[in-house]
Structure formats: structure tokens, C-alpha cells
Design a protein around this nucleic acid. Structure first.
Lengths: 130, 130
DNA sequence: GACCCTATGTGTAAATTACATGTAATGTCA
DNA sequence: TGACATTACATGTAATTTACACATAGGGTC
């Protein structure tokens, strides 16, 4: 029986919520991809580091294809050209849908955490803190 | 520009937390795969449905390979043979690690949700409920 | 010119998830 | 008794997601 991961799996977030996070940022005002990446970082667990850049650009392309966001090339300034994205009305609707999905995920996760504390309470693992 | 998903992505959970959920259940006592699947269902968002059965068996095999859980064949009763799993000490440690990962995910998600309400508050989308 | 930083992007492998299917034991009901 | 359902475990493989490597390009600095 061969298993690839020897001891513990990777517990980093897998960026499933990059999409709503981008929409939230764009709901606040237009931005370009490179900037979004930086502003995205603090929205995820601190140990996660910045999300993958290539993934962000691909996400932005997909969202534009969906009509969730729209883009224009920014007025050429110093440095390489920037593509500036803004959220559409349809994007605001999508964001509202995401909010309810996130809320139910939140509820599920807190239930799981509660179950953990119940299970851990009577055992060896110290749980007096938290 | 061809995008595969036309309007909105699939917001169902992608079972990223099946592993800690299984460990939580097994921390409560031994169980077999088919039973775990049923007891897993209410730990996820209600609209998600039961997690994929084949995925659960594969997860159990991987966890056993990792030493996180261990199994024995149950005393033969009526119906097909059951493999009964129980959590190991190393599994309890892994569960504790998961708990902190979940806690930080929880924090990130609630931050995201808060950002959504901030963004939504001044706009068209009615948010008086929630 | 060599090198770094910003900025956008493609190519592709690896990992994860979903769906289809196969097996076996037992029970039911006509 | 044989077609069908239910429980239970398992493999095969397609589809999707994520990660990593790399390419391109403008501009600054040394």
C-alpha cells in the first residue's frame, strides 16, 4: 500500500474563494491584476502567502468571459501596460450569491470546529486555551 | 474568447474538509466507511448532498497509509463485510493541526463576508436582512 | 549591458474531485 | 428461483482545479 503523502497533508487554503475575494475588491473600485494579488493576500490565512499570480490572471479572464467583470487597458504610464478591471452589475449579483455560499460554509466550518472541541475535551490533547 | 462556465461557477463545497470531518467522527468512536458517509453529510452545507462514496474509501485508504487511522474487518454479520476504522494517536495529533487550520480559514472567511457587507451596504443589493 | 521590479500572460504537470462501473452478501417479492 | 433492491467496499478514469515553470515586455539602476 503506497501513499504519496507520508505524514500530513498540505493544509494551505486552495484558493477556492479567490473568485469572491476578487469580486469583493473590485466592488470597492477598479484595479489591475498585479495590484489585486497584493490586496488579496491579507484576505486569506496569514501563513498562506500570496495567491498564485498566473491563477489570478486566468481567473480574471474567465470572469470577463462570464460577464462578471470587464476590462480596459489603462492610460499608458510608466512601466508595462496594465489591464484595469471593474465589476459589472452581473458581477454584483454573483457576489451576492457568493455571500450566501460563504455564509453556509462558515456555518459548516464552525460546526466542525465545535465538534472537534467536543471530541478533544475529554481526551489528552490540551484544549484549555482557544 | 471561449469560457467553459457560462454564468456562475459551482458553489458547492469541494470536500476539502472531508479529512478532518472523518477524523472528528472517528475521534468519537470506530465506524465503517458506509456509515461515515451518512454521518458526514450533516457536517457540510445542507445543499451539498452526501460526499462521494468512492472518495471516502480512497480517503480512508490514504489515511490508513499515513498512520492516521487503522482498520480491522468487523465480526462477520449479516450483509457484506465491513472494514471498521479507528483513529490513532497520530490521527488525534493530525486532528489538532486541522483544528487550527480550520480556525484560521474560519477567520479568513468571516473577514471576507464582512468585506462583502461593507461593499454591499452602500449599493443596490438589499442587505437589510441576513 | 546585466540585472531587478512591475505587469501580463501561456504551457503543462500534479493534485483533487466527480462520475461510471464492478464486486459481493443479503433480503424481498412475485 | 430469479429479478431487483440495499448495504458495503473497491477500482478506473475523466474533468476540474491548483501549482510551478517559463516567456514577454517596459522601465529603472549600477
Amino acid at each position: 500500500m503506497e501513499s504519496k503523502r507520508i505524514v500530513h497533508p498540505d493544509r494551505r487554503p486552495h484558493w477556492r474563494f479567490t473568485e469572491p475575494a476578487v469580486l469583493v475588491l473590485l466592488a470597492d473600485g477598479p484595479a489591475h491584476g498585479y495590484e489585486l494579488r497584493a490586496r488579496l493576500t491579507p484576505l486569506f490565512p496569514a501563513d498562506a502567502g500570496p495567491p498564485d499570480a498566473s491563477g489570478i490572471y486566468r481567473l480574471l479572464h474567465r470572469l470577463e468571459g462570464d460577464g462578471t467583470i470587464r476590462s480596459t487597458w489603462a492610460e499608458p504610464g510608466p512601466g508595462p501596460a496594465r489591464r484595469v478591471y471593474e465589476i459589472t452589475d452581473s458581477g454584483r449579483d454573483a457576489l451576492a450569491e457568493w455571500a450566501s455560499a460563504i455564509a453556509s460554509e462558515l456555518q459548516a466550518l464552525s460546526g466542525l470546529l465545535a465538534a472537534f472541541y467536543r471530541a478533544g475535551a475529554g481526551r489528552g490533547t490540551s484544549q484549555a486555551d482557544a
